[in-house]
Simulated assay, not measured.
Amino acid sequence: MVRMRLPNGMFLAGVVGGAAAMAGLFWLATALIARSESTTELNQYDTMLVDGHKALKPQIVAGRTQSLYHPLPWVGTKVEVSCPTGLKALAGTTMTCTGERHDGSTIDIPVTVIRATDTHITWKFER
């Protein structure tokens, strides 16, 4: 068996480099999992009309927001989400959904349309 001895500085550099790499992977995984942007198809089942415009039904916005709001224990708060109306498929449209915590307190969840076409809507919510 061949034993290699590393100078103390090299060992320390390896440990620090390994820790930095793990922290970077942790951050990347959290960023990917904790996304708050969603693109949804505007089909006959998920769409309604609001003020004459195609809109994503409120239960679709609420369900997607609720599923993405608390994806990891260290990101977001576990809430039950409800939205007041459909989300109009017009870029720049905003509305506020409500998140109810298990203790009965509520939080406002702003929702904004980023892009919209005749067939898809891309929107995001704020944590």
Results as ranks from 00 to 15, higher is better:
1 M>R: 15
3 R>F: 05
4 M>W: 07
5 R>T: 05
6 L>R: 04
6 L>E: 01
6 L>M: 07
6 L>T: 01
7 P>K: 14
9 G>P: 00
10 M>I: 11
10 M>W: 10
11 F>C: 07
12 L>G: 02
12 L>F: 05
14 G>Y: 00
16 V>A: 06
17 G>W: 01
17 G>N: 04
19 A>G: 06
19 A>T: 10
21 A>P: 00
21 A>Y: 05
21 A>T: 10
22 M>D: 03
22 M>Q: 06
23 A>G: 08
23 A>P: 02
25 L>R: 02
25 L>T: 03
27 W>Y: 09
28 L>W: 12
29 A>G: 06
29 A>Q: 08
31 A>T: 10
31 A>F: 09
33 I>K: 14
38 S>D: 12
39 T>H: 04
40 T>L: 14
41 E>Y: 11
42 L>N: 08
43 N>T: 04
44 Q>C: 10
48 M>V: 13
51 D>T: 08
51 D>S: 13
51 D>K: 08
51 D>P: 02
56 L>C: 11
56 L>H: 09
57 K>M: 13
57 K>G: 09
57 K>S: 12
58 P>I: 14
58 P>D: 11
59 Q>K: 11
61 V>A: 14
61 V>M: 09
62 A>S: 12
64 R>M: 12
64 R>E: 13
66 Q>G: 13
68 L>V: 06
70 H>Y: 13
71 P>C: 09
71 P>W: 07
73 P>K: 15
76 G>L: 02
77 T>Q: 12
80 E>G: 00
80 E>S: 07
82 S>N: 04
83 C>N: 03
83 C>R: 04
83 C>E: 05
83 C>K: 03
86 G>N: 03
88 K>F: 01
92 G>P: 00
94 T>L: 00
95 M>C: 06
96 T>D: 07
96 T>W: 03
96 T>E: 10
98 T>M: 01
99 G>I: 06
100 E>I: 10
100 E>V: 15
100 E>G: 04
100 E>C: 03
101 R>E: 07
101 R>L: 15
101 R>M: 13
104 G>C: 05
104 G>W: 04
105 S>T: 15
106 T>H: 06
107 I>F: 06
110 P>C: 11
113 V>Y: 11
113 V>G: 10
114 I>P: 00
114 I>R: 10
115 R>H: 11
115 R>P: 00
116 A>V: 09
119 T>V: 12
120 H>W: 10
121 I>D: 00
122 T>C: 03
123 W>K: 09
125 F>N: 06
125 F>S: 07
126 E>V: 11
